[in-house]
């Protein structure tokens, strides 16, 4: 078990519940999809898993014990993130080399240019990308840069928030392929937040469906998407546009 959310609840200051009783386990080598629509609480759960927000109830278990402040640096070395909008996730004033090296600097791993070059290489970008600025790259390339930043410190878990939904279809295929190959080569597990069930089916072995802050269904992706038991899951699957 890499990470386990035990009975997580989150309420806004107004008292409205964003999450209720969410329990989810992430095992090594089994990519997890968190599926749901806007307002379901996906982003809130992700912020909690990233240690950016404190749950109102329940706790996160990491490496055999509840996650606490003093272990945050250790946790962050193992758990990194990729965001949806590659235009918002790269600082326009930093060169790519500096952007990718940021976790090395922040997590005390030692800023080593060879590791930056290796990360850029792993995501299929040339080494000379390090000297350039984000605006010189397309959306798909920017997302590769964001992935390079996430994997530069060799984390075990990558939390990916809609990493391909802002991308064109053909670019989407290439980024999904990249993520799949990183999992295979680097002993990396992904938790994918997505509303795109095709991408989920392609990349994840486990699927959890979130509706109105509750997990209404979870299990093997084949089972959840192939034989959904909850009406909301069925509605989601029926809504996916398919080629004739």
């Amino acid at each position: 078990m890499i990470l386990e959310a035990r009975n997580i609840g989150f309420a806004y200051r107004s008292g409205a519940a964003a999450l209720t009783g969410v329990s989810l386990a992430i095992e090594p080598g089994r990519n997890v999809a968190l599926v749901g629509e806007s307002g379901a609480g996906k982003t809130t759960l992700l912020r909690i898993l990233l240690g950016l927000a404190q749950p109102s109830t329940g706790e996160l278990w990491y490496a055999g014990s509840p996650l606490a402040r003093p272990r945050m640096r250790d946790y962050r070395r193992s758990v990194q993130a990729v965001f949806q909008d590659p235009y918002s996730s790269l600082d326009p004033r930093h060169r790519i080399g500096r952007i990718v090296a940021e976790p090395l600097r922040g997590l005390g791993l030692g800023v080593d240019q060879s590791r930056v070059a290796a990360a850029l290489d792993a995501v299929g970008l040339p080494a000379d990308a390090a000297g350039r600025y984000p605006h010189e790259f397309s959306g798909g390339q920017r997302q590769r840069i964001a992935i390079a930043r996430a994997i530069v410190g060799n984390p075990r878990l990558l939390l990916a928030d809609e990493p391909v939904s802002a991308l064109d279809l053909t670019t989407r295929v290439r980024i999904v392929d990249l993520l799949a190959s990183l999992c295979a080569e680097r002993d990396l597990t992904i938790m994918l937040v997505s509303h795109d069930l095709g991408v989920v089916a392609e990349l994840c072995q486990h699927t959890a469906v979130l509706e109105h802050g509750r997990l209404v269904e979870q299990g093997d992706t084949d089972r959840v998407l192939g034989a959904p038991s909850h009406p909301y899951t069925r509605k989601l699957i029926e809504s996916v546009p398919r080629l004739p």
Binding site: R73, R76, E102, P103, G106
Partner: peptide, 9 residues
Amino acid sequence: YITAARVAG
């Protein structure tokens, strides 16, 4: 990128 920086410690 601010969130990314926080996650990067």
